[in-house]
Simulated scan of single mutants.
Amino acid sequence: MSWWKLVRGKVRTYGGLSGRSRFCFFFALFALPPVSLSLKVLGLKRTQALLNSLPIFPLEDGALPTTAEMVKVAARYTRTSCLPQALVLKALLRCQGVESLLRIGVRREGEQLEAHAWVEVQGQPLNQEAEVYQEYQVFAPLTGKPHL
């Protein structure tokens, strides 16, 4: 397949998306690299604070799975890890007025300790399969409030 055919196919696919899907895709595409950099420079709490300053706008019905999918697609182009993806998805959901939780879990893989981040809405992982709870030991939700 030639490069041009591939690009033309992507443009057709893009043209079939709703306005909200396009917005989510481009927001994620352009937000993922700076969020990754912000995590390295500012850390998690400051990056979350910056993302929490974004405005809120009305949600279209059925947009949650589409929002998560658009972040996944954008992440393929930016090659970002799960934490920036989860933060961008959480920011998009917050902008749409949807309450969500950032979840982080760990697991031991041989001698290695692996961490993974995802977003949960109403007790269900939005950008992961439900099996993520069996695969990872989950920390308490990161809300920015101290736990007593």
Rank of each mutant, 00 (worst) to 15 (best):
M1C: 04
M1Q: 05
W4Y: 13
K5I: 10
G9F: 08
V11Y: 04
R12M: 11
T13D: 05
T13Q: 06
G16T: 12
G16R: 15
S18M: 07
S18C: 08
S21W: 04
R22L: 01
R22A: 01
F23E: 15
F25Y: 15
F25N: 12
F26T: 12
F27E: 02
A28G: 02
A28S: 05
L29P: 02
A31W: 13
L32V: 13
L39S: 02
K40W: 07
L42D: 09
G43D: 04
R46N: 01
A49M: 03
A49N: 07
P55H: 08
P55L: 06
P55S: 09
L59C: 10
E60H: 05
D61G: 05
D61L: 07
A63M: 00
A63G: 03
L64M: 08
L64P: 02
P65V: 03
T66W: 03
T67Y: 10
E69I: 01
E69V: 00
K72R: 15
K72S: 14
V73N: 09
A75G: 07
A75H: 05
R76F: 15
Y77P: 01
T78Y: 02
T78P: 00
T78C: 01
R79E: 08
C82W: 07
A86E: 07
A86Y: 10
L87T: 08
V88D: 13
A91P: 11
L93T: 07
V98D: 04
E99M: 04
E99N: 04
L101T: 09
L101C: 11
L102R: 00
L102T: 01
R103P: 06
G105W: 03
G105R: 05
R107Q: 08
R108F: 10
E109A: 14
G110M: 07
E111Q: 15
E111I: 14
L113V: 14
A115W: 12
A115M: 13
A117D: 06
V119T: 09
E120K: 00
Q122L: 13
G123D: 13
L126Y: 10
L126N: 06
N127I: 07
E129K: 14
E129M: 12
A130S: 05
A130E: 05
A130D: 06
A130C: 01
V138L: 12
F139D: 07
F139R: 08
F139T: 09
P141R: 00
G144P: 07
K145C: 11
K145S: 12
